[in-house]
Write a protein that binds this DNA or RNA. Structure first.
Lengths: 331, 331
DNA sequence: AACGTGGCATGCCACGTTGCAACATGAGGA
DNA sequence: TCCTCATGTTGCAACGTGGCATGCCACGTT
């Protein structure tokens, strides 16, 4: 059991209030008093009680990161960046997994634990815009990924349409003509996959090429592998997967079944997860600026907390194409 | 701003205490009173205030997961399992990254945020046993991975010596004779790599084969790639990496430089991360029972919380060998 | 000598909850 | 009739902190 303000105060021969002033460092305290109190603080190993501060001040210093699954490399990398950078805002990150389940997302959005946190950073999959805007909880919320919530909520995303079009154009430039896309999720409300599909279609239309789409249930490697197995029977010469995980699953099946990548078949992904850089062959992908996403999300949350009434913002973060061996053949 | 007990009490015409009884569900409350109060609770959307509960009861419902980096697939997968299972204990997971830095680990071990949490689950890299036992904070602590803390702390691990020996024997059985190991971290106090090295040496000694060790700074793919680059000049016919990430980096370099895996060179890892299953070729590895690790850690923490004075335990979790194409050639 | 000023220090209170002990009520037994 | 007991219900106190208003003192000014 750690010491409290009262014990420090008694031992230092000052009032509780003065110790509080020393601890928070703000108010007027005579240098010698401050020093004496500080000595007692060190002696007793006093640490401010977070629960009391939270109750008194209304801030917990916690931010919830709500995402489908932390084990997914893209979210893992993002979580790492967020956790590191949260320190600059005196925040600690708390992880909530939803599995992409709409009911669970709604529950987390609106309460249970949300009283505990100063804000939420969320990547919703199953929630509709109306779910998002209808929420009753008042904790600031920043969305990751594209969510059309009628411009009523803060969110941070890359330009998915442009990115997908860029990547598709790259495939066309390397001579591919029968380019399939893996990764539409018709059962989800989440707009991200739809945006990427839009970019894919746009680039194909420009070049007068046909589209071919394979929907998936989830974005795991196994889904990419299953989709690729299906595609092996057709004569596609390129596959654009809407996530690197899908692409790695597809790549595995393609290579394992004897296809030459990229000679026979180009494979490209999205997200620039570390696995892709070390895949065989290395995976061409769209690389969102993840540090920028993390910074934007935290800054946005901090701004919202400081100014709850401000108009909501849509922050667009840069991305770039990472051309690697899986589409160009140079290793 | 959410309603509090007092407002519910006033509206329901009962005392604050009775509402509290209804909310916590335990004490004696007449069915009709309970129903009336419950109606008001729903009406006002009352949610218990976590800060006040924490202050009053001393429990926050938070458990800190302290690890080197959440973006590392092994830790990411483990964090996902822990986050999911924590719900069964009414816990929420909070993530703290150390980067493997000893000073940061010590800081997290002993305070700052630890007042906030009911317990810590930690995977230390840089801390010595004496650092671990010398800590002043009283929050229950469970260590992940092998840590020789003089038997004074709870920890959960697989039998790393046996696992490494098993894997090395598998390599020998497939005809390998010049087996290198990548992954010793001489600069770290962390005992895990040393245990794996011990198993590796033991199996080699049994077969009368020579050892060859390449130390690394970290366990990232890039480190495995660098180590493999070094090894390419020698004539090893198998590489045992102490993590799948190292192995994937090594595999990438080996394949990219034209080696036939597994014909010319077998590559094996440790951890059974998902990437390895979909690598080209798929990666042979030691698969710790991760769900069991997560369960053991949480149970252990809960037990310790219930009974702070109990003797500390070392929980050994099962593992198994996952033989895949990177060592056997069957894909 | 009286007054004003500014630097320090303090006491009181409230944040929302739950443990504890006490109290009200009505039923049942001596 | 009185006492006991079980069932419901209640008020008080305390967890540790920070905002607010005020008190105190020394010093400089009028």
């Amino acid at each position: 059991m750690s010491a409290n303000l009262r014990q420090v105060a008694e031992r230092a021969g000052v009032s509780v209030r003065t110790v509080s002033n020393v601890v928070s460092g703000f108010a007027l305290v005579a240098p010698e008093t401050r020093e004496r109190v500080q000595r007692v603080i060190d002696e007793l190993g006093y640490k401010p009680n977070a629960a009391a501060r939270h109750l008194r001040g209304g801030r917990s210093g916690l931010v919830a990161l709500v995402l489908p699954e932390i084990a997914s490399p893209y979210f893992g990398e993002l979580a790492g960046l967020l956790a590191d950078r949260a320190g600059a805002y005196a925040w600690t990150l708390l992880v909530q997994q939803t599995g992409g389940d709409a009911a669970r997302e709604r529950e987390l959005l609106d309460g249970v634990r949300s009283q505990t946190v100063d804000g939420l950073i969320m990547s919703p999959w199953g929630l509709s815009p109306s779910d998002l805007t209808r929420r009753t909880d008042s904790a600031p919320l920043v969305l990751l990924g594209e969510q059309d919530a009628g411009g009523l909520l803060d969110h941070v995303a890359i330009d998915n349409v442009a990115a997908a079009a860029d990547l598709t154009r790259h495939l066309i430039e390397t001579g591919r003509r029968r380019i399939a896309a893996i990764g539409l999720q018709p059962h989800l409300v989440n707009g991200t996959a739809a945006r990427r599909a839009e970019g894919y279609h746009r680039a194909l239309a420009e070049a007068g090429l046909p589209a071919r789409e394979i929907p998936v249930r989830r974005l795991h490697r196994a889904d990419g592998a299953a989709a690729m197995t299906e595609l092996l029977e057709s004569d596609v010469d390129a596959v654009f997967c809407f996530s690197d995980q899908l692409a790695l699953g597809a790549l595995h099946v393609a290579v394992a079944s004897g296809r030459q990548v990229p000679a026979d078949l180009a494979v490209a992904g999205f997200d620039d997860i570390e696995d892709g850089r070390f895949a065989n062959p290395a995976l061409t992908t769209v690389a969102p600026d993840k540090p920028a996403i993390a910074d934007a999300a935290l800054t946005c949350l901090a701004d919202r907390l400081a100014n709850p009434g401000a108009p909501s913002r849509r922050l667009v973060v840069p991305h770039r194409l990472e051309i690697r061996a899986s589409t160009t053949g140079r290793s």
